[in-house]
Structures are given as structure tokens and as C-alpha cells.
Computed example of a mutant assay.
Amino acid sequence: MPTSQGGLGVLNLDKFTRALRLRWLWHEWKDQTKPWVGLETPCDEIDRNLFAASTNITIGDGNTVRFWESAWIGGRRPKDLMPLVYTISKNRGKSLRQGKEDDAWVQDLKLDSQSSITVDLVEQLVALWEAVRNVHLDVGEPDQITWKFTNNGHYTASSAYHAQCCGVPSTNFNSLIWKAWAPGKCKFHAWLIIQNRVWTSDRLATRGWQNNGCCPLCRRETETALHLVATCRYTKRIWHLISAWVGYQQMDPTEWEEA
């Protein structure tokens, strides 16, 4: 995860490679002169779902917008809104213009022996019919696409990577740890303490491993990360001396406990 979201800032390779693969889908829109456009790209369904959720489409002539795969119905794809109709469609590679002309998308619908007409299928058919009827194509005006996660609307691998981290709460670790003046190993140790990932006696005990039990400094309380850095009487003495030295009273751990 990014450091602003509590992580170490080390790239998640799965998320990063997915962000890079979205470049193929972006160039299918922006540069159709590339020789591979129209061929199968190395993108899976998750890649395409992320791309659809990360972009806004403005319909022009309908030549670039995919009838089933592009999010042209209120920012959502027909294959997601009308999955039953999508299932019985036998030609899913048409553009919006090709599907709209002479209602070609209707001619592509074929029921097999295992399919049946249901109320849900009819409702989805009617909804798609109305959506297609309400679309107006502007001949001579190309379709446009914009990327949601950049100010200029252009795709970047960095924004595609961070888009996959959306929904994770932000932290103040950047100002609290990473931007502070200290050696890197001290910052990393502080991060481990906040995450409660240092091998103190309480964590060792939960795994049934040998441990000291009590704090080796005060010999009174169980050794925990919080106890070692704030509540131990020896630690408090050190913080009092440092706070007196630098003239910064908020370093008093007693005030931390009250807060």
C-alpha cells in the first residue's frame, strides 16, 4: 500500500502489472493506427471492468464505442445491465454504430435449446431497446474517452495503480513517520510499532513461543509495544528528559495516555 494509506510504499506487482495492461485498452481508443488494434489484447475481465469504471465516454460517431463492452449507458456497460440479453447475443464484437444501424443487435440474438424467454429477459430487452433508440450518433465527430483519476483526463500508470487502492482509509503516517528526520531503520521500526508487528512478549506468547513475559526494564508489566515506547516507567523517564532538553512538553507520554 502507499505510505499515505499505512503501507511501506512497496509496489504491489499484481496491481502494478494490471495498471500497465490498461495502457493497451487506452491506446485502442487513442491510437488506432497501432498494428495490434483489433486483435486480442492480454487483458482479462478484471482489467476491462477496472477500465470501464475508470473512464468516461462521450459518444460521437459510434465507431470506437463497443456496443457491449463500452460503458455508454449512463456510465455502465450493456453487458452488465442486460446480462441475459448479452448471453444470447451471437455477435458481441460490434461497435455501437454497427449495432444501432438497422437494429443489427436484435438480429444477433439467438435462443438455443437451453434458453427460454423469461420476464427478466423481456424487461432487459425493452430497456436496451430504449437505450439504443435514445442514442444519437454524430457523424464526423469521433468518440471521446477521458480518464477519471487525472486532472487532464489522460491515462497514467500511476493513477491506474492508485485507483486500485481506493477505499482504503488514509493515515497521517507520511507526516508522523516518513517525512520526519530520522535514519531509515528508525522510521521502519516506528512503522512496525504502530502496526504492532514488533516481537514483544505478548505477540510471542500468542504463538506459544518462548518469551520474557514481563518487561525486562521495569519487571512489573507485560512487555508490549505500547508499554516499551510509552508507558514503562523507564521509558517515561527518558521521554521527560528529552522533552526538557528540546523544550517540547507534548513529548510527555502521560499526556498521550490522557489524550
Rank of each mutant, 00 (worst) to 15 (best):
Asp80Glu: 12
His27Pro: 00
Ala157Val: 00
Glu255Gln: 11
Leu50Asn: 01
Ser54Glu: 04
Gly213Ile: 07
Arg48Asp: 03
Thr58Leu: 14
Asp143Pro: 02
Ile177Glu: 00
Ser95Thr: 14
Asn196Arg: 13
Glu130Asp: 15
Asp31Arg: 06
Met82Ser: 05
Val168Phe: 03
Leu217Pro: 09
His154Ala: 03
Lys15Phe: 03
Glu69Gln: 08
Leu96Tyr: 05
Leu137Gln: 06
Val229His: 11
Ala225His: 05
Arg92Ala: 08
Leu125Trp: 08
Gly140Ala: 14
Ala230His: 05
Gly93Ser: 13
Thr64Gly: 06
Ala104Trp: 03
Tyr248Ala: 09
Ala160Gly: 01
Glu223Trp: 02
Ala182Phe: 09
Glu258Ser: 13
Leu25Trp: 01
Thr222Met: 11
Trp256Phe: 08
Gly184Asn: 10
Arg23His: 00
Pro83Asn: 14
Ser113Phe: 12
Trp256Ser: 04
Arg18Gly: 00
Leu176Ser: 08
Ile73Arg: 07
Ile238Thr: 11
Glu255Thr: 09
Gln32Ser: 11
Asp202Asn: 14
Thr41Met: 12
Asp47Ile: 02
Ala182His: 10
Glu101Ala: 14
Thr17Ser: 08
Ser4Tyr: 07
Ala157Trp: 00
Asn152Met: 04
Gln249Asn: 13
Ala53Asn: 06
Lys79Cys: 09
Ser159His: 01
Cys43Pro: 00
Met1Cys: 06
Thr41His: 07
Gly247Ile: 02
Arg233Asp: 05
Gly7Cys: 14
Trp105Phe: 08
Arg203Gln: 12
Asp202Cys: 10
Asp112Met: 07
Ser243Arg: 03
Ile145Val: 11
Trp129Met: 12
Ser95Met: 12
Ile59Cys: 08
Glu45Trp: 09
Val10His: 12
Pro142Lys: 06
Asp138Val: 13
Thr156Gly: 02
Arg66Pro: 00
Leu137Tyr: 06
Gly208Glu: 08
